[in-house]
Design a protein around this nucleic acid. Structure first.
Lengths: 216, 216
DNA sequence: ACCGACCTACCGACCATTCGGTAGGCAGAC
DNA sequence: GTCTGCCTACCGAATGGTCGGTAGGTCGGT
């Protein structure tokens, strides 16, 4: 009795896990943690609900795996783009924004999950607390370096500017995900350009530079 | 935490509705739309679940009523503060931020609901689309007026600056709601101060002014 | 007498998770 | 080669609980 090959395909562990993570990312982005059921994710993948739990022990473990996976992927991408060179804050954020503009579902996943995670009982509560602390810290350090290089006006307190830029990116992402979408990367670039201009540097990035492309 | 349940107490319609709206706002802020059950809200108020549905016909109607109520309350407050005078954008946003700093649950409600509402199937999807359009429009108009008065650098495109400021406030709110919280109003004020300074106006709002209090 | 606030009882659907199993594939013994 | 034992991928059924919503009644204030 040969089993019919409709959807009952057996896959190696890593491959199936990857499938599940992708499907789960989409589902959690659309309807959030509480609004997404394991059955939702399972049917997207073409697996039974217990089949899903064979790979991730619980719903909480699943969403944490999704978030950590995506963070790691981002880090890998940025490392790859900037190899051993250490980029300016402006370049760094512009590249990140351009990358984000190509994957709205991922941006939505983080927007929704970050907001949901404000609840101390949310599985990703600590994850996002740590994440924002880390991001602000890293960004502040880069800002300080750029200030020493004369790329950013030394009037700014690095930690404060870091918070502001993170806030701006988050807020722009939210509006970019809505209809009508705002020109996320364009607006970010124009804001960043003023940071360079204020430092009195004849930088290549000018405010409202004609050649700037807007994102999809 | 939970309103004490006085057995068999019957309240007039408007009063009970108000109680329910308050409790629902808290619940939706903490766990979002999908994460909140009608039973949660009902027990907070001290009413049975069908008792709640006697006042609001469905969960969807409840969250919409909560959001619209709070928007109307905000509008009433701003009208009251600024009476017939029409304030500058900077004053307007600073007052709004100061008010928000006193009610984190409400800020969280909007942060969470706005993110959730990105899902087209969310009951507040259209509500937030319209809301953001309206806010940007109103803010852009005020910015244009301030530019004519010389309060804001005319380099800025009003619509773009409106998007940026809304994004900044949203993003700062998110970080302010997390631990450790950022100095939401302080950071906003410092950003706004630069708008005035760039216009060459000796405004009353100075960046990092010593008397500025941080929030809550 | 009746309106409206609110109750108990209940429905059908869905929830995450558990359990007990089945089948494919691979390793080594014969 | 093929038998055997075991690991892994996965399923069907059922767990106990919660979900939003409905039906029909009770009871107090006017």
């Amino acid at each position: 009795m040969v089993a019919e090959r409709i959807e009952g395909l057996r896959l190696p562990r890593t491959q199936r896990r990857q499938q599940i993570l992708t499907a789960a990312a989409q589902a959690f982005a659309e309807t959030g943690f509480h609004g997404t059921s394991l059955a939702d994710v399972a049917t997207r993948v073409g697996v039974s609900q217990p089949g899903l739990l064979h790979h991730f022990p619980s719903k909480q473990a699943l969403i944490l795996a999704v978030l950590e996976e995506r963070d790691a992927e981002d880090a890998r991408y940025l490392d790859e783009v900037f190899q051993q060179a250490d980029p300016s804050v402006v370049d760094w954020l512009v590249v990140l924004c351009a990358k984000n503009a190509q994957r709205p579902e991922l941006v939505q996943l983080y927007t929704v999950a970050a907001a949901e995670s404000l609840d101390p009982a949310h599985p990703a509560h600590e994850f996002f607390q740590r994440r924002y602390q880390r991001i602000r810290q890293v960004l502040a350090a880069r800002i300080e370096l750029d200030q020493q290089k004369g790329l950013i006006d030394p009037v700014h307190v690095p930690e404060d500017l870091a918070s502001e830029l993170v806030a701006l990116m988050d807020g722009l992402q939210l509006q970019w995900l809505m209809r009508p979408p705002v020109d996320m990367c364009g607006l970010l670039r124009r804001r960043l350009a003023r940071l360079s201009a204020a430092a009195g540097v004849a930088a290549g990035v000018a405010a409202g530079h004609g050649g700037d492309r807007s994102d999809d």
